Amino acid sequence: MIFATVGTQIPFPRMIESVRYAAERLDIDIVAQTIDVDYVYTPKGRLTCVKTVHPRKFQDLVAAADIIVSHAGIGSIISAATASKPIILMPRQSQLSEHRNDHQVDTAKRFGSRRGIYIFNDGPELVDVLTVPLVPLAPIEPDMSPLIAGIKSFIWNAS
């Protein structure tokens, strides 16, 4: 199963259309979290779209998925790494009015060469990536630096 997520802030119809394109051509179940309340996603192939996903359900979907497809958000990359899942990223582009700047394009450039992270820009590229063997993203080791430990302690012990 593939879990696709556009994040929690703004819809990303170009990514969902690319996921739909892949679902129509590949024999795999895809669950997509869309957050889009205006766009109507008609079922095609084995694609199921849900507008919102509770954080616990999100983690369950990440754990159950073989592959994560996502916008190029750091939270999604961390989720995939924590679960040791391959992640395929589509960066939002400001020139397409998908975001206010190109920080996701920069994120994709920065992390795109890392083992377990793949990049796509449209449906045919997504199909191409999904038809080759993918390796999981290496797990993120907890940072136990004194700064991080102090911040965690402050947050967890705040009343």
Rank of each mutant, 00 (worst) to 15 (best):
I68W: 07
R56S: 13
A64G: 00
H54V: 14
V50I: 13
V50E: 11
I67C: 10
S70Q: 05
P55S: 08
V53Y: 03
C49W: 04
I67G: 09
D66T: 06
L61V: 00
K57W: 03
Y39M: 12
G45I: 02
Q59C: 11
K57H: 12
Y41C: 00
T42Q: 12
R46F: 07
A65Q: 06
D60A: 12
K51L: 00
F58R: 05
I67V: 15
F58P: 09
A72Y: 00
D60F: 05
H71A: 05
T42F: 14
Y41H: 03
A64Q: 11
A64C: 04
A64S: 06
F58D: 03
P43W: 03
R46N: 12
A63K: 03
V69W: 00
D38Q: 12
H54T: 15
F58I: 09
Y41E: 05
Y39D: 00
C49A: 09
T42R: 10
Y41K: 02
G45Y: 07
Y41W: 12
T52W: 15
A72N: 06
C49Q: 01
D60I: 08
K51W: 04
L47A: 01
D38H: 13
R46Q: 09
R56M: 12
K44Y: 03
K51E: 10
V62K: 03
I67Y: 09
T48V: 15
D38T: 11
V69R: 01
H71D: 08
R56E: 15
P55R: 04
K44M: 10
R46H: 13
V50R: 10
V62F: 08
K51S: 09
T52I: 05
A72S: 07
R56L: 15
V37I: 13
V62W: 04
V40I: 14
Y39K: 15
